[in-house]
């Protein structure tokens, strides 16, 4: 998993496909980083991602459960139309903000 930590913010650069197979590794590694660095904000970067199923939703929800206890937030960036549809349909947008690039 590719990631970056800036103070209490973790950016996770998601792979091309986020399914059950890849989600396991992301979950394990992200939890280790969150533990070590007192992470409060998590940014999921979908730049390279063109496929995601409900396993990806599980990863987002699980990480949110961890950091919401300390008032943290989860964000999505660079999500294409397909990924946005998956996020919206799952209802995860209730807890996650989607950063819109064209709003800059």
């Amino acid at each position: 998993m590719k990631y970056q930590v800036q103070e209490n913010c973790l950016t996770i650069y998601l792979p091309r496909e986020v399914d059950h197979h890849n989600a396991e590794e992301i979950r394990r590694e992200a939890d280790a980083v969150i533990d070590r660095n007192h992470i409060k904000y998590i940014i999921f970067d979908f730049e390279k991602t063109d496929f995601m199923d409900s396993s990806g939703i599980g990863v987002i929800m699980g990480r949110y459960k961890t950091i919401c206890l300390i008032g943290g937030e989860v964000w999505a960036v660079h999500a294409n139309a397909r990924i946005k549809k998956i996020l919206t349909l799952s209802g995860v947008t209730k807890i996650m903000q989607i950063y819109e690039e064209d709003a800059v």
Binding site: S54, S55, G58
Partner: peptide
């Protein structure tokens, strides 16, 4: 049922069948 899962400890979202239906 959406959100129903027998494996919440494995971070399963319970959205599998809902996605198939959608």
């Amino acid at each position: 049922q959406p959100m129903f899962t027998t494996k919440p400890e494995q971070d399963r979202s319970g959205m599998g069948f809902a996605f198939m239906e959608a």
